[in-house]
Design a protein around this nucleic acid. Sequence first.
DNA 1: TATGAATGAGCGTTCATTCAT
DNA 2: CATGAATGAACGCTCATTCAT
Lengths: 186, 186, 186, 186
Amino acid sequence: MARGRKVNSNGERSKQLLLEKAIELFAQNGYHQTKISDIVKAANLTQPTFYLYFESKDSLFNSLNAEFNEKLMSIFDTEVEGNLSLSALQQKLESVFTFFAQNPLLTKVGFFEAMDAAVVKAELAELLKQGITGVHGVEQPKLIAEALVGTVERLTLTCVLTGEYTPQQATEAVMSIFFASAKELV
Amino acid sequence: MARGRKVNSNGERSKQLLLEKAIELFAQNGYHQTKISDIVKAANLTQPTFYLYFESKDSLFNSLNAEFNEKLMSIFDTEVEGNLSLSALQQKLESVFTFFAQNPLLTKVGFFEAMDAAVVKAELAELLKQGITGVHGVEQPKLIAEALVGTVERLTLTCVLTGEYTPQQATEAVMSIFFASAKELV
Amino acid sequence: MARGRKVNSNGERSKQLLLEKAIELFAQNGYHQTKISDIVKAANLTQPTFYLYFESKDSLFNSLNAEFNEKLMSIFDTEVEGNLSLSALQQKLESVFTFFAQNPLLTKVGFFEAMDAAVVKAELAELLKQGITGVHGVEQPKLIAEALVGTVERLTLTCVLTGEYTPQQATEAVMSIFFASAKELV
Amino acid sequence: MARGRKVNSNGERSKQLLLEKAIELFAQNGYHQTKISDIVKAANLTQPTFYLYFESKDSLFNSLNAEFNEKLMSIFDTEVEGNLSLSALQQKLESVFTFFAQNPLLTKVGFFEAMDAAVVKAELAELLKQGITGVHGVEQPKLIAEALVGTVERLTLTCVLTGEYTPQQATEAVMSIFFASAKELV
DNA sequence: TATGAATGAGCGTTCATTCAT
DNA sequence: CATGAATGAACGCTCATTCAT
């Protein structure tokens, strides 16, 4: 067969293509079920081409996860208007759901397939714990925070990523479940 | 050199040993990170012996999952005393947490490592949805049910399996989060 | 094709066979030209079998070299009778040539193909330098030692390993070249 | 993105650059450890450019070796003044060491890294054998010739290429080792 | 003249699985 | 009942080489 450069080939596009297919496949089938041969086949390229743009399967997967983590964490770095923690929390939550909804594949990979997703979730729990500590009526912040993470995780997977619910709706649902009584007080 | 039956060996015992070690390793490291060579090494046996008792790695893993699923589902098959759905739900929840707490390894495998854990969780969500439909004040049963599943899932992993909370405490926490207002009405 | 154990198969023999073929091929063709596929083909086995007995191609090659180095160096560890350094040197030299003659393949690998053969030769030069320092008439021991190493190396390759000369003959030749005048004095 | 001829680029210069870098790398790291990508990187060029000037990695390596061989052999083609073979030999030897000292990289490649260095050395041995045959006191010319080659080889590597000894010094050392007695007779 | 982009061919290695004993 | 020995099939990765521009 013909070797060498393809007609109309373009490196940046190839790299992008590989990335896209990789995310798709990782999201769909997970890390182990996704072979490099699958990725390049989907991108209509060959295996050596993969290594032209990525160091290894591992490093690609890790960089995807790193990207997910950074973006997720950056949500909590930005200040929000108002300092009533409950409304602040609501804003964060909505940002999180929105981020997930706008990056469904990355989310599936980083939040549901990654080996270190557990770490991210633990970090998220910690952040949420800090966000709810002091909210009136919350007595076991650690436990509530974990429940929140679980709820977010599951709603994301079954309601938001499916398009059944908007990030706003999901947020409201979560708020009403967890802080209905608190709200009434406000 | 020496081959054949070990002294003091016993088929049933070997099978049991392999099963135990398999669950431990699957629970700790997941399916792909657990090699058959690891399992038999842990059981102080050899690879062909594994195939004496199990058809394949897959089939063993699947049977573990099936066992988990059955046991979990059986909780919902048994009638509970009283038919006020909320207290029935509470009883089911406690049974679930108790089952998880008493079978931590099986739970880690079947609920957190299995490829088809998604199916189990969906079934669980469906059952819970039926359980809460009609409960006063619950307006989006599907969504609530999913949130419940997520909460149960996360609390199990981070609070119950760690021993930090008892099944009863976890149950109460869940009930108070999700049905505090309803309870007050009762 | 048939998998599993071959008829009349024997692990120790297979390992030995692989080792033999490996040495032969490494000796003949060098490290890079020798593929694992070549080795197992020569041993009438398959690639996974290679890894049953050796950790990797590298580790096998290195262990061969280590074995060579140890055996070579052990010659210089043993005391010799008489302390006239010249006759001691002669004994060592003959031991070296004998070792080479009796382990032709290992010698080809460890002395002529190994990446770290340079190190061994440097060590050998140092040992010889110590052996000749103080011998009457030797004025530039370092240089003489290196010349000795070169001579030994070349004679080994072209005269001893070919069987053209015996270790004794080679030794005598070396001694008469390098120490003829000294001997006359004795 | 930008392709085509570099400003200030010049074919002859590029070829020269590649050659230089290739020799350096081959000399330093050997044939297999030197990748074409290394060579062109060192020359600040790209891989296709390499193939503009050389047929293949092999052919470049071979041509370097051929160059080395020719130059080395040419030393023995030129007549020397005087026909006393011993002084003739000394002149040749000094020419050889001088050639090595003046072409250290080419020498490392052609004499120490090339697959067919063995052939060159055999030829050298043959030439030296002819040179010493008939010299008074030399009884086993073949053996002496091989010893000479080994000595030259090793002294070159450890004394001459390092700059520790001049070609003249190395020559004298070799002559005094191998022909001290003969000289006395003269 | 030179490069960006791509690939064929192959290598070392791993793992679930299976004979023969 | 159990094991020692072996393998098919595949995977991640590398490298010299080549087209299209």
